[in-house]
Every structure is written in C-alpha cells, then in structure tokens.
C-alpha cells in the first residue's frame, strides 16, 4: 500500500525549541515521505503541537535543521511554510459560519474575473475538489453554520488543499467528532495519501492512528521516543512508548545486562 520515495518531502533533524524555561522540544527527528501518513502521538504536553507549529512557521526553531525535499530550508513565518507547500489545519477550525462552503474554501485567495469575484469558477472548482475527495456535503452554497462537525472538519481540510500543498498537517482532526464523522475524516486522510501527499496526523485515539497511519512517531517530554511502522506493531507497544513504560523497561533491561556483564 505504502509507496515511500527515497528522499522524504519533509525531514526534521535534531530540532530543538525552548520557551523561556521550558525546553519544549529536544533533538527531535521526523521524516515524512510523499504518500505517507505519519501519526504523531504523545501525552498531553509532549510537544506535538509545538512540533507542528515549528513546521507551520508559527514558532521558528532554535536548533536543528528542517529539510524540504532534501534541502535545508528556513521556516520563520507561516507564509514560508505555505510557500513550500505545507498546509496546516488547526484544531479550532476558524471557518466563517456566515459564509458558504465556496466562500470559506477560497477566503483570502478568491478567483477574480476582471476584478470581480468569479463565483462560477470558484463553485465549479470547489465541487470538483470535493467530488474527487468524495466529500459528502449537501451543497457548496449553504452556510458553514448548517454543516455538522465532521462536515466542517472536511471542509477545513479541503480548504488546506486549495493551495495544492505537498504536506498536510492535521492537528487532532477527529477529537470532537462522532463515529460516523470520524470515519469520514479518516477516509479523507486515506484519499490524501492516495494522491501522493505527505500527511502528519496528530491524534489521541489509537484506533484512528492504527486505521490510517503508515508510521507512528512517538514524542515523550519533548524527545523522540520511537518511530514504529504500524504493521507489525501492537497498540500496547505504542501506548508503552507514549506513557514511558518502554523507557523503564529498556533502562531496566540495560541495567540488568550491565549487571550480568559484570
């Protein structure tokens, strides 16, 4: 299923980030390939959102290198990330309730025709985009307010795709959704992968993660705590890495080995 090209689209090498006295990220590595879904998991405060924000240009990194298609790049502002082809959907979707779906999808980058909003072209492209993603919404001309939570989430994701990004970051897209709606979003994540996009998916839900991710990347207290292929890794192993149980197990075993060697 997974097609992984040799050079990752996006790679973080030894990234560190400090907020005053808090060392939020220490020496973090992360790789995302085209057509790969990387789940980023970890306890509350593990640094997931911070990591995502460094990639999205919200917080510039202190140390380390961010590589884009093999070349080191500087991402200092959100615009830098967007220009590279990184699209981010934050947990609070920040859609405009009073505007319709087309209006929201194209907000801030409206298509014009002789200086005037080209509603017909925007509507046509919006329908094409939603159709190819098999996004089920009643009409592209109803206000966002009349959509369900899941439908809003997929609109927000579709909005991120208008700029034709290569990497899409989804921060907790299913956190507030019901079963059916979550399924809808996970379907969409799979379709993004089929289109050859790299996806970073932050989630608290192990079921979601194992359903769609190719790789699970665990952060613990701002550090890498393992990267697992989803196939061949049990939920227990991942949970252990998140809670730090492996940490203890590993250290204990190492300690035992050291003792045995004596």
């Amino acid at each position: 299923m997974v097609h992984v090209s040799a050079t990752p689209v996006l790679a973080l090498r030894g990234v560190s980030k400090r907020f005053g006295a808090v060392q939020a990220l220490t020496d973090v590595d992360l790789e995302v390939h085209a057509g790969e879904v990387v789940a980023l998991v970890g306890d509350n405060g593990a640094g997931k959102s911070t990591l995502v924000k460094t990639i999205a240009g919200v917080h510039p990194i202190d140390e380390g290198v961010i590589e884009w298609e093999g070349k080191a790049v500087n991402i200092n502002r959100p615009q830098d990330a967007q220009a590279l082809g990184i699209a981010t959907t934050y947990q609070d979707l920040a859609l405009c309730d009073n505007l319709d779906v087309v209006g929201n999808l194209y907000l801030g980058r409206e298509i014009l025709r002789v200086g005037v909003l080209d509603e017909v072209t925007m509507e046509k492209r919006a329908r094409e985009l939603l159709n190819t993603l098999s996004i089920r919404i009643p009409s592209v001309r109803i206000p966002i307010a009349s959509l369900s939570g899941g439908q809003r989430q997929v609109v927000a994701i579709a909005r991120a795709l208008i700029g034709e990004p290569k990497v899409v970051i989804l921060d907790e897209p299913t956190a507030a959704l019901g079963v059916e709606q979550t399924a809808q979003v996970l379907d969409l994540v799979e379709r993004l992968r089929e289109r050859g996009l790299g996806v970073i998916l932050i989630s608290h839900n192990m079921a979601d993660v194992t359903a769609v991710a190719d790789t699970v990347h665990v952060l613990r207290l701002g550090r890498n705590n393992g990267s697992f292929p989803v196939k061949g890794t049990t939920n227990e192993q991942i949970v252990a890495a998140i809670t730090g149980a492996t940490d203890n197990a590993v250290t204990r075993r190492q300690a035992r080995n050291v003792e045995a060697a004596k």
Binding site: Y90, A94, C96, D97, L99
Partner: peptide, 17 residues
Amino acid sequence: RKVFAVGGSIEGARRAG
C-alpha cells in the same frame, strides 16, 4: 467578501490572511 468574513469570524478572517 472580507467584510462578511470579519463579521462572521475574526479569527477565521485573520487565518485567511
């Protein structure tokens, strides 16, 4: 469109640039 967007959601408008 921007006037309506700001009237609908300030944060949404800001994120849209």
